[in-house]
Design a protein around this nucleic acid. Structure first.
Lengths: 344, 344
DNA sequence: ATTGGCACTCGCACGGAATGAGTGCCAGGC
DNA sequence: GCCTGGCACTCATTCCGTGCGAGTGCCAAT
């Protein structure tokens, strides 16, 4: 790929095809885009592009259509990510402003993203693995029945009921509560587990010292709550009606996608690792591990408070999609979402 | 509608059409079903059925297709709800058995229902309006920061953070906690609000007595939590890939449905009032309030512990669907789900 | 390297004919 | 009175065959 103009031709093809959904021919190209050359010249370039595998012709006498490889080159080198307009920015901010809690924020983001891109939007709830413990509360609901409340930095609250064998006095509970909070408050939940075990059996005590059964049970329950929730990666999906934009091929394209959307595990894998720092990743067609999704692309990025990528968010759509627009929207929503999490 | 055989003909038409998805003619009818008459006779019956509006012919020389009215008659008078087989019952029980918490139960039910019926399944989370308060907990996270925890009979736990203006001592809190629990424990949440307000300003006190600001604030927050959640009717949706069974008409049938599925409010309205006591309601095509959903039917019922209809659950699919099968599956899942809620 | 010209290819839309499933009706039989 | 076989008729669907035109590839000229 040496020639400069050829790249312009490829870009023009992609843009036209995305807009019209129809194979684009040499003549239409020079008309619609202002490349100052004749159709014949463009034809030569197109032949070369086809040779190199960036575009393909569905049949002999039809226009050209970008291949996955063509889209790839397009997003890698040919897009100038257009920033959102001021109006759009205001709309985004306003839309997210009214949210009352974390769930609401995520729901609103999903809806927003699907409306901006007119694609299927997927937003993962902030994972807890990176979040920190804000507070742990122990409450005796009954003499042998404890309620554990775990409050995390993301604003999420987890609770567990714990039955214990022996009655627990209010003082014991208060002491334990204080100990636990001293140990884990502010800790990343991955580390909190270790700290909790230490409480049940302090390292400075002799190794054969009897461990405190209450503390051990509470620690176990808390650790379990943290782990459980770490793997419980909830996601929010919206805009499925935009699947109509896939065109006709329901069985080959839409149905596998609908199935993937229900398999949240698959979906998360598809969205990939959360990438921080405003980097938007794009997976085009068969680049992913799923054969059936060879006609779908994913545009995703990470988000989270303080530029830490706690979770991912993105859109899923046909390979023939508006990549620059989707990337811009995904990036913008991730940014605003991160900002909101910052404040909270 | 006098003739007995005509009804058999209608039933046969519905069954055949549901199976083949194609207009069914007189000849095919007598072959596939054992009605011991000639095609000509059937034709006469069909003419009569068409006259009365139970079936219709898409065009002159094609077979007949049931109308909404035909389906209605079919479900009202012609179906014998076939009970689930023992194997199916075991599968259902096994599938739901493994659930760990309420969310999991609902999720599993959704998946189960969509697999049983091969339709889109919708399960509403148990509404709280009928549920009772099991326990209220007040925790001082900081001197002026309270955590309210509301535990309901459904096993759902709601929490609210409350900032107060004045520092609260542990004793004050304990007293208030005791008072609140005495007042509301076991109460239906609809009544709990009244009881809470009474605490803030006892009726036996002079009307102009200063009310307790702390109690008032807590009461307000709790009431808000209850109300909030009463209207926050979460639902779980599964099996959207079964929408493929709608056939080709994506834009006229599938898309409106996808949109409805995202509008949870619409969806809940569609499912209708929770009907208790094992009654399954069926809404066929345009019988509902939504023009766009004239090609979809809803089979739903209520469920909840102790035969109280706390929430609804059902399937949504094309008017041409297997009503007896769907009704049986919906009823069975609702029954098992209720039983599980009973135990909890 | 670019361009105009030109022959060529094929998918697709259009039109007419053949096909056949299915109907409506009638006259005769149980 | 109801059922049945027969028969003419209808009309959506399928299948060709044709013409059209968008679009290509190549070549010779600039």
């Amino acid at each position: 790929m040496q020639n400069e103009r050829r790249l312009s031709v490829l870009r023009a093809i992609v843009e036209d095809y995305v807009k019209t959904e129809e194979p684009v021919g040499s003549k239409a190209l020079v008309e619609r885009h202002g490349l100052g050359v004749s159709p014949a010249t463009v034809r030569n370039d197109m032949a070369a592009l086809e040779e190199e595998g960036y575009i393909t012709a569905p049949h002999t006498s039809a226009g050209r259509v970008p291949t996955d490889k063509g889209y790839r080159l397009f997003v890698d080198r040919l897009t100038t990510v257009k920033p959102m307009t001021a109006a759009e920015k205001r709309a985004i901010a306003g839309f997210l402003e009214g949210a009352v809690d974390l769930d609401d924020v995520v729901t609103r983001s999903t809806r927003l993203l699907s409306q901006l891109t007119r694609q299927v939007a997927v937003v993962q709830y902030p994972t807890l693995s990176r979040s920190t413990v804000r507070h742990v509360e122990l409450v005796a609901l009954a003499p042998t029945r404890l309620l554990l409340v775990l409050i995390l930095s993301t604003g999420r609250v987890e609770q567990r009921l714990l039955e214990v064998t022996e009655e627990v006095s209010e003082e014991t509970l208060a002491t334990l509560r204080a100990k636990i909070n001293t140990a884990v408050a502010g800790a990343v939940i991955a580390d909190a587990g270790e700290a909790l075990r230490t409480i049940a059996q302090p390292p400075d005590a002799p190794a054969d010292a009897p461990q405190d059964p209450l503390a051990a049970a509470v620690a176990e329950a808390l650790i379990e709550a943290m782990n459980d929730h770490r793997s419980d990666e909830r996601i929010s999906i919206g805009g499925t009606s935009n699947l109509a934009r896939f065109g006709d091929n329901f069985d080959t394209a839409v149905r596998p996608l609908l199935e993937a959307l229900e398999e949240h595990v698959v979906l998360l894998k598809l969205m990939g690792e959360a990438t921080a720092g405003g980097l938007v990743t794009v997976r085009i067609g068969a680049e992913g591990p799923y054969q059936e999704l060879s006609q779908t692309s994913v545009v995703a990025t990470g988000y989270g408070p303080g530029d830490e990528a706690l979770a991912t968010l993105g859109v899923v759509g046909p390979t023939r999609m508006d990549y620059p627009g989707s990337m811009a929207a995904v990036r913008a929503v991730a940014r605003y979402l991160s900002r909101i999490l910052d404040e909270a």
